[in-house]
């Protein structure tokens, strides 16, 4: 068998390609000749793998602005630029204080005892009790890097896992929602802001109609609220709030309606919102941890798995 194969193979050896017998050497010659092209293609493939991996939102921790080197550089820059915004920051803090004080005063100014008609003493084993479904911890953080121009905008803050910040926490500003913590290092965290094309945010109008808020890229002040039926009357200036469906605390302002447009094809109106947070000059944010969210997501995941 070996011999016949050898004879079959032999005539080719006399042809113009004497190297046919040495595939390894041919291969090396080929690589040397097209080395640049091969290197180019290899690097491009590496790039596309990186892009694909990040777009699946697996939390690419090395290549994000939460890592140590870029975090330090951004922090140095922020230390310099910080002073230029102090006046504006002060104004926003004062207005937030006023809002909080009025909300607090509203709690203290009602008394429900007067209207109570029936009094029935509760039994010791009565089933009436307070149900707690969320428990929030607020932590403040300073924004050290921020972008509004790309398709998915990220914000870097100066708090990390050492301060108890973990992934999937909600981030708020003094006036509205900001985003979600995506990746964390020990001293920095990077946040996917609401200005992104990947995620939608569940939202409701003041009468309770649910919809979802997304962002149309290119305009950092404009959000879009979809899925609201045409019959629901919405006026300019109406507020849009977060729901308790998402990981955000409920009833936070997302934005106010600026313009409404009705899609003729499926009779659904599209509302253009002016976002409550000014993403251009964010300086302080609050990172909100819901200590009971873990239990909730575990339950929800287990039910979807059973189906």
């Amino acid at each position: 068998m070996q011999v016949t194969l050898f004879f079959l193979y032999k005539p080719f050896n006399f042809s113009a390609k004497p190297n046919r017998k040495k595939p390894l050497r041919n291969f090396i010659l080929f690589v040397r000749r097209f080395f640049n092209l091969i290197l180019f293609l290899a690097l491009e493939i590496v790039c596309f793998v990186l892009i694909a991996r990040t777009n699946m939102l697996q939390g690419n921790d090395v290549l994000s602005s939460a890592n140590a080197v870029s975090g330090i550089i951004y922090k140095k820059r922020e230390d310099v630029v910080y002073y230029f915004g102090l006046k504006r920051l002060n104004d926003s803090l004062i207005s937030e204080n006023i809002r909080l004080r009025s909300a607090l005063a509203a709690y203290g100014s009602y008394d429900t005892f007067r209207d109570e008609v029936v009094r029935r003493p509760l039994e010791g084993n009565d089933s009436v009790k307070v149900v707690q479904y969320a428990n929030y911890i607020y932590r403040q953080a300073r924004v050290i890097n921020n972008s509004v121009t790309s398709e998915n905008n990220y914000i870097t803050i100066n708090r990390g896992s050492d301060d108890g910040i973990r992934r999937k926490m909600a981030v708020l500003s003094g006036t509205g929602v900001v985003g979600e913590v995506i990746s964390v290092s020990s001293h920095y965290a990077s946040i996917l802001s609401v200005l992104n094309v990947k995620r939608k945010l569940s939202a409701k109008l003041k009468d309770g109609t649910m919809g979802s808020v997304m962002w149309e890229e290119g305009r950092p002040d404009v959000l879009i609220l979809e899925d609201i039926p045409k019959e629901i009357k919405v006026f300019r200036g109406d507020s849009v709030f977060t729901t308790s469906y998402s990981f955000f605390p409920a009833n936070l302002l997302i934005g106010t309606v600026e313009r409404r447009r009705i899609n003729k094809k499926n009779n659904i109106q599209i509302l253009y919102l002016k976002s409550a947070t000014n993403f251009r000059n964010l300086q302080y944010v609050y990172v909100v941890e819901n200590t009971m969210l873990d239990e909730r997501t575990r339950l929800e995941d287990s039910t979807t798995k059973d189906k």
């Binding site: 180019f40 790039c47 990186l50 991996r53 990040t54 602005s65 870029s70 790309s150 990077s190």
Partner: peptide, 15 residues
């Protein structure tokens, strides 16, 4: 990419 959180996009164009 590291600075702008865009893993791979700048690298692809630059290569």
């Amino acid at each position: 990419d590291v600075f702008m959180n865009t893993a791979g996009m700048h690298a692809c164009a630059t290569v």
